[in-house]
């Protein structure tokens, strides 16, 4: 099957896949799941191998579609393919469904405070929050806070990757290291990261060091544990197969263990990405002078309630984007893990 094209985003992507499939199995019409991928694979491969390649590019559909003019009259075209229009319609319908809940939430947020079902002092209508958000954006305040937050998140996240991946590889590969570090790891991973925040502040002070450190700490765990699991989870048969070809341990590690573990490692990285944003806010509520967490906390203190919500919206949007990015990246690195 053509590697699920990563180009388009979630919704558009699946719609596109359906239409690609439509060419090989026209009678099924458009189906929602990828179940027929398998059936299209098998030995009947020859015919779809050609279009397998062309299907990789998002923007030029495999033959059909607009194309050059001069339609040949002779052959009746095999069952109608979804043209651009129908495809767009499908994607559109899906998008509507996905956005519906969000719109509903927005409407509820707008209407309930206006009807004073909830106290607008504590939960101002969404429109007011958005106005406050626009004002923060205009004044540049938002960018400053978001920038400070992102810098901390990315620093902690990046350092966590740099430290936890090699350590995880080491633990996963060398049994003695695992046996030695096992109990300590078990102890620490069951200690909530935020419970240690005061300790970090105590030792590293209120500055950037302690904030980046706590993010690093929180991010390191999922990466470390997934890396260890990834290395340990490599199919022993693959190791046997490579060993039988006389691969030395170093080459075995490089050519088999590492590539086999990459998807699992990436799952850890994606989780860590979420943690980096989650922990960030808490870290910034203690002794920060900038950052979205600080903004939220500070706004609440000064009863700038719309600003507080604006900060919250920003941080959730940030988390969402970051996660989306990492999911995309993860998918790219684990296309083969479909068995």
């Amino acid at each position: 099957m053509p590697r699920p094209s990563q180009g388009a985003g979630g919704l558009a992507l699946s719609a596109l896949d359906d239409s690609v499939l439509d060419y090989s199995v026209p009678d099924y019409g458009v189906q929602d799941d990828s179940a027929q991928d398998d059936s299209a694979q098998g030995d009947s491969g020859q015919d779809d191998s050609a279009q397998g390649d062309s299907g990789q590019d998002d923007d030029d559909p495999p033959r059909g579609a607009p194309g050059p003019a001069a339609p040949s009259v002779t052959r009746p075209r095999p069952p109608e393919r979804p043209g651009r229009g129908r495809r767009a319609l499908l994607a559109g319908r899906r998008a509507v469904r996905a956005v519906a809940a969000l719109l509903l939430l927005a409407a509820v947020w707008e209407i309930l405070p206006r009807l004073e079902v909830v106290d607008p002092t504590f939960l101002p209508p969404l429109s007011e929050v958005l106005l406050a958000w626009a004002e923060l954006l205009r004044s540049g305040e938002l960018a400053d806070h978001a920038g400070a937050s992102l810098a901390r998140s990315l620093a902690g996240f990046g350092l966590a990757i740099a430290l936890a991946v090699p350590l995880g590889l080491l633990i996963g590969w060398y049994r003695p290291v695992a046996q030695f570090l096992g109990p300590v790891l078990e102890l620490f991973r069951n200690t909530a990261a935020l419970a240690l925040l005061p300790v970090f502040v105590l030792i590293l002070g209120l500055g950037e060091t302690s904030k980046v450190s706590i993010i690093l700490y929180a991010c390191a765990w999922p990466i470390l544990l997934n890396t260890v699991a990834g290395v340990k989870g490599v199919d022993p048969l693959l190791i046997k197969s490579a060993t039988s070809m006389g691969l030395k341990p170093y080459r075995l590690f490089q050519k088999v263990i590492l590539p086999a573990a990459v998807p699992t490692i990436f799952t850890g990285v994606r989780l860590a990405g979420a943690y980096s944003i989650l922990v960030l806010v808490a870290a910034e509520m203690v002794g920060a002078k900038a950052g979205l967490g600080y903004l939220i906390n500070y706004a609440q203190f000064n009863f700038r309630v719309p600003d507080m919500y604006a900060g919250i919206i920003t941080i959730s949007a940030l988390g969402l984007l970051f996660n989306l990015l990492l999911v995309r990246l993860e998918r790219r690195f684990s296309t083969w893990r479909t068995t």
Binding site: D235, L237, L238, K240, S241, A242, T243, S244, M245, G246, K255, V256, P259, A260, V262, W336, R337, T339
Partner: peptide, 28 residues
């Protein structure tokens, strides 16, 4: 010990799933 003077074919194929057919053949 193991060596490239003997080739082994396993029941469960033992192909490297992240490599294409060609790259799998290239492994040895």
């Amino acid at each position: 010990g193991p060596g490239l003077d003997r080739g082994i074919v396993f029941q469960q194929y033992a192909l490297f799933p992240w490599r294409t057919a060609l790259a799998n053949v290239e492994f040895g």
